[in-house]
Design a protein around this nucleic acid. Structure first.
Lengths: 178, 178
DNA sequence: ATCCGCATGTAAGTGGTTACATGATTCG
DNA sequence: CGAATCATGTAACCACTTACATGCGGAT
């Protein structure tokens, strides 16, 4: 269960409520994982049941009480084991590549539309990531390794999208050639 | 349901049995989607129930009868609609990036081991894709557009892995610097 | 007053994985 | 004679998504 590990990772950086995690997945984690609240609350419950997290109830400042989750020592062990373990098996799932693979069925106009639409999305995501990198700190690997690693994951996303955009441009160039 | 569309795509290239599809997912489709047989047989059954595919039973040459599935005209419409439709929403899921994001917990040796292990996997996949590209034809976009598109999807995978390996090398270089 | 953000969850459904179950043919 | 490949499927479980359900406090 990768999601449980990721949540443990966030809690190890800072104790959080389910709602805080929702926002974390909507910002810092967007480019490597996503989770909706139903999943988050369910996973928090199992983490507590397994003794990997514990709840500290804090009176809510505006509304219901906040169930702030902390990692327990056992949870920290599980997190570290995951980080150092063999790679998670992750079968590839890329619906866009799948479409291109079968797009011989499509006429030229529809194909160009498909690729341009994808290009627009990819550029938007890349720009968003670049903005995020510009806004946040670039820590030195030796002074703040944890922060440096977090900023490097952003870098990978930016390069990834850049390479993909270049590939889309090649496709378009071939399609538009006389 | 993306899997149903992909299967429709394969059947549109050539009528196939569930077993044939298993092999197709194990070879041509490996770099953009994966599916195991339980899923394939279940999805074929729903395609037939929905009238998007029909079965032609052919006596087996060595073993049970082959249930060869053909796309129906209705199925072909559904496939073409998918190909031209708005992009499928696909939340990002990259367990390795997630690990790097939280890898501040890890000591230098464990971190380097993690990155080198990933590098090994990425190089292996890239080489496999490059071999596959060397072995297969590179059709001309104008003479055989469908074939050209299929070979281009391979290209994207190769570039993607190449960019990722370069990023991993940068990580390692920083870690090993005095 | 009404809407937005904070904060908690449950229920039902879909999609994906693992394990179980069977049997013929072909190659070494 | 045993292992691999061809060929079919079912059952149970796990992970993820969508929709439902509730209610306070602060801003416009």
């Amino acid at each position: 269960m990768i999601l449980a590990r990721i949540i443990l990772g966030f809690l190890s950086l800072q104790p959080m409520t389910g709602y805080d995690l929702m926002r974390a997945f909507g910002s810092s984690a967007t480019y490597f994982w996503s989770a909706d609240k139903a999943q988050i609350y369910r996973t928090l419950a199992t983490l507590v049941a397994d003794g990997h997290a514990r709840i500290e109830t804090v009176p809510g400042t505006h509304g219901p009480d906040r169930a702030v989750h902390h990692v327990t020592p056992a949870g920290r062990v599980v997190l570290r084991e995951w980080l150092a373990s063999d790679p998670d098996r992750q079968p590839p799932r890329d619906a866009f590549l799948a479409r291109v693979f079968f797009a011989g069925e499509l006429d030229d106009a529809a194909l160009a539309r498909l690729i341009r639409s994808r290009r627009g999305d990819a550029v938007a995501v890349r720009d968003e990531l670049m903005e995020l990198r510009a806004r946040t700190a670039h820590p030195d690997p030796r002074a703040d390794r944890a922060g440096w690693l977090r900023s490097m994951t952003l870098d990978d996303g930016i390069r990834d999208h850049t390479a993909h955009i270049a590939w889309l441009d090649e496709l378009l160039a071939e399609l538009e050639e006389p």
